[in-house]
């Protein structure tokens, strides 16, 4: 029996084949370990006490949700995440717009701007801890002398430490945001921009009415990426304050890493991590809904 595919079917098969390698790779090398890790979270198991290994169902999850330390960390993490992502988006967009026009100067500046991303995050934390130190730091010492920092320095005071850590994260990741948005800006079709210019639309109007709507997909990408990554921040905080002073910079990831990789309470550590993943999924879903409605409203306008 002869059998012919319609062009539409052929197209679907072709697209499936294009997506398949990535899907298979992610399924094997990411999904499989994740599922195993999720399995751990249902057990009471500590790798340092291998004789303890019982199934406890969701008890690790209920323990985590009722632990006051976890709750405090959740609040700190949410403030940190929202603050960092918002600041990075604004700074990154400004930078991208500044560097949009093509010139040798801008090309060179774009490259140099990437330097912070090339430094290992733990080292970023170390650099700023050193620079902001009120006794030895080139910045911290003079800030203290000028009376602009609390007596124990910006990272040593419960009121300023979180904001300072946010500043460090923004320093490190704004270039990434800027680069992605810059690539998107450069891919914008020139004719539409020219048309807008001929129409005589002013700078701000052009930005909010024409450029930003066209950038929405990239803005979403940047936001989603940064939300997922900032929520899991570990290295810079670990190196700069170790979660202190007090609990003021004690992000969830520090808790999860401590439980899982220092105490080897892998069941509890995995449970905290999976709760974090759920938070991230929730935040991104919220983001999608917001951006969709924004998209619709902009298209109507």
């Amino acid at each position: 029996m002869s059998f012919r595919l319609t062009p539409l079917q052929r197209r679907s098969i072709f697209l499936c084949l294009m997506a398949a390698p990535a899907a298979i790779h992610v399924a094997v090398f990411a999904l499989y370990p994740i599922l195993r890790g999720m399995g751990f979270s249902l057990f009471q198991m500590n790798l340092m006490q291998p004789w303890i290994h019982h199934f406890v169902g969701l008890r690790n999850y209920t323990d985590a949700l009722t632990d006051p330390t976890v709750r405090r960390s959740l609040v700190v993490t949410i403030i940190f995440t929202v603050g960092c992502v918002a600041a990075e988006l604004v700074c990154g967009l400004c930078l991208a717009l500044l560097l949009w026009r093509d010139s040798a100067f801008n090309r060179f500046a774009t490259t140099l701007m990437l330097v912070p991303i090339t430094v290992t995050p733990i080292v970023v934390g170390l650099i700023f801890r050193a620079l902001l130190d009120p006794s030895f730091g080139l910045i911290g010492y003079w800030l203290l002398q000028a009376g602009l920092a609390p007596p124990q320095g910006l990272l040593g005071d419960t009121h300023t430490a979180l904001a300072t850590m946010m500043g460090i994260d923004v320093w490190e990741w704004t270039p990434l945001v800027a680069l992605i948005l810059l690539a998107a800006l450069k891919a914008l079709p020139a004719d539409i921009l020219d048309a807008a210019e001929i129409d005589g639309a002013g700078g701000t109007r052009r930005l909010t009415r024409i450029i930003l709507p066209m950038l929405l997909p990239s803005l979403f990408l940047v936001l989603a990426l940064r939300f997922t990554d900032v929520f899991r921040t570990y290295d810079i905080v670990f190196a700069a304050t170790a979660g202190g002073p007090g609990d003021s910079t004690n992000l969830l990831m520090l808790l999860a890493a401590k439980e899982g990789l220092t105490f080897f309470d892998i069941g509890y550590g995995s449970a905290i991590s999976i709760l974090m993943t759920l938070c991230i999924v929730l935040m991104v879903a919220l983001l999608i809904v917001t951006l969709r409605s924004l998209d619709r409203r902009m298209n109507q306008a």
Binding site: R129, P134, F136, G140, G156, A242, P245
Partner: peptide, 14 residues
């Protein structure tokens, strides 16, 4: 100043 955020490195250096 800053000793509340020092570990061994900062302490020794001081």
């Amino acid at each position: 100043p800053g000793a509340v955020n020092w570990d061994w490195d900062g302490r020794e250096a001081s």
